[in-house]
Computed example of a mutant assay.
Amino acid sequence: MRKSLFALSILSTFAASAHAQSTMTLYGILDEGVMINTNAKNVVNGKNVGGRQFSIDSNAGTQGSRWGLRGAEDLGGGMKAIFVLESGINVSTGAFGQGGTAFGRQAFVGLASSSLGSVTLGRQYDSINDYVGNYGFAAAYGGSTTEHPGDLDNVNHTFRANSTVKYASPNFNGLTFGGTVSLGGVAGEVSQSSGYSLGANYGHGPVGIAVAYELFRNPSALGSILNSNASATTFNSLNSGYLGTKPANSLQIITTGGSYDFGPAKIGAVYSNTRYMNIGAFGGASATFNSYELNGLYRFTPALSIAGEYNYTKGNAVRGDIGDQKYNQFSLLIDYALSKRTDVYFLGTFQTASGTSSTGAAAVADIGSLGDSSNNHQAVARIAIHHKF
């Protein structure tokens, strides 16, 4: 009996030691709601018969529904091995998100040091997401239906980078920085579909400011930054003319953002410049979009908050009036927390478009992940429940 108790004590000690050195967490978000789209596009026999659409949706909420596993193993000396496997899910149907990619949100493994930073390898977010993203309304509050048209600047991390090596620094008195390098994996063409991003953020007290830069070759090629999911991406009319037949051979994004916290109130701003360069269909010309965003949040109580955004996005004319397009967008979020893990909310976005799209047709509204509208104005409203586990 004494030997059995001694053996049990030894096993318990090892188990406690293993638990202290290694951790693994199952986590997730479920965001499901009723949504109305005033002008959803629907083409039947070549004719647009689109209009009002009602749906139950879990992909266009304040945070996309997901589940994931994250883990860490203590290697000693302030070093640990880390990993994340995260999958987007459609609660309405049970299907994978990100075009059916099993771990489409994130999938990486690497090493992290408390004094040197981390190096990770796999499918990952770029530096725009890591350093500027949370200054934008979509990533911080509203989700995909409040992102800039088509998420052209990737401030709401619609696009992930495959085959990526990432470095992220530790925090130096409020300063963090890092970068990514994505390998195209094309034999004999080292630069094809490859790219890199760099970013930095400084936060001190109520003030935060960040900047990021990104450049990708052949961005619309299968597996590259704009087409990295299991199924091929369909581009919307605001940029499909630059990414279809004879597409742009490179994509450059420069973006900056900042915020100021007043206690119960917070204001933020984001600017981005997106360039599709050397477009074959337009004789090597470049198309440029400039996007300006102002957002704010006010907390009436710890449970009740309201947030809003205005975004103006302008495209330049590439040939004649093709690409001379303008978008004005307003978003509103009212959120009430039932607990630390569960809240209910109302979310609405209204957008107007004008000018000529990249296809040469009249520009149409293009709210978030919903695709082209049936005309030049569109409104989306959503009432939903949001639960974290």
Rank of each mutant, 00 (worst) to 15 (best):
L183Q: 08
T164I: 03
N129T: 08
G205I: 07
F159V: 02
I128F: 08
H204S: 14
N134Q: 09
L183F: 15
N134D: 14
Y125P: 00
S169W: 11
S127I: 06
A200G: 11
A221W: 01
Y141S: 13
T145E: 14
A139E: 15
S193G: 04
N201R: 15
R123S: 04
F216Q: 08
Y196N: 02
G184Y: 05
G184H: 06
N129S: 13
Y131G: 03
P219F: 10
I128W: 07
D126C: 02
D130W: 05
L116F: 13
S169I: 12
S127Y: 07
G188A: 07
N162K: 06
A187Y: 06
N134M: 12
S191T: 10
N156D: 13
N129P: 02
T120Y: 02
S194H: 02
S197F: 11
R160G: 03
V190M: 03
E147M: 09
L222H: 10
P170K: 10
N218I: 00
A139W: 08
T145I: 15
E147F: 02
S220P: 01
P149V: 13
N129V: 06
Y125A: 10
G195W: 05
G133N: 13
K166D: 00
G223W: 11
N171I: 08
N134T: 11
G205C: 01
L222D: 09
G142I: 11
S144Q: 04
A161G: 02
S194I: 01
A221H: 00
S118Q: 10
L198D: 05
H148A: 12
G150A: 14
N201I: 14
G205P: 05
I128R: 08
H204M: 11
H148T: 12
N156F: 13
G122Y: 12
Y213C: 01
Y131T: 03
L121K: 01
A210T: 04
E189Q: 15
P219H: 13
L222A: 15
V155L: 08
S118V: 10
Y196W: 12
G122R: 07
N154W: 04
Y131L: 03
T180I: 07
D126W: 09
S191V: 02
G185M: 05
G179C: 04
I128K: 05
T176F: 10
Y167G: 13
D151N: 05
L152D: 12
